[in-house]
Amino acid sequence: MIAPAIPDRVGRRWVALAMAVLMLATSPSVAVEPSEMLKDPALEARARAIGQALRCVVCQNQSIDDSAAEVARDMRRAVRERLAAGDSNNQVFDYMVARYGDYVLLKPPFKAGTLLLWLGAPLVLLVASAAILVAVRQRRVAAPPPPLSERERERLRSLLGG
């Protein structure tokens, strides 16, 4: 969260579209709009939840729910159409992945390519805990009991002395 600015890196991206997207990206007015919303509140709530888990493909780390981009609007509408047609949440996600790939999921699927992403941190936790336990145990066995600290000795004296 440092200073936002328009990246001056262009490559083969669409300058104009990117600018338009960036200009709109911070304007909240054009995310989910009343006209898009479903009548059925339960279905609309599902649509919102799904929308927050789908990435706007032309934005920078925004969900389609938060995005003003044209394609995000289309995707929101498609989500609602699929839901209205009776699709399950997973079917809607599959529908989007078939068109935009795993990229569109803000929570990457658990598969071979993302194994390390999902299991990396738990693995670190597991290995480190094991290493710490072993180290503590070894040192406890190898080393003589620690000598009393000054405070403890003092306390012992005061206890013995009554």
């Binding site: 927050q52 990435r55 803000l106 929570k107 990457p108 992403l117 999902w118 941190a121």
Partner: peptide, 14 residues
């Protein structure tokens, strides 16, 4: 060459 996105739902889960 595979493109994935890691966003809020991932971090909420981990």
């Amino acid at each position: 060459g595979n493109k994935v996105s890691v966003g809020p739902p991932f971090f909420n889960a981990t």
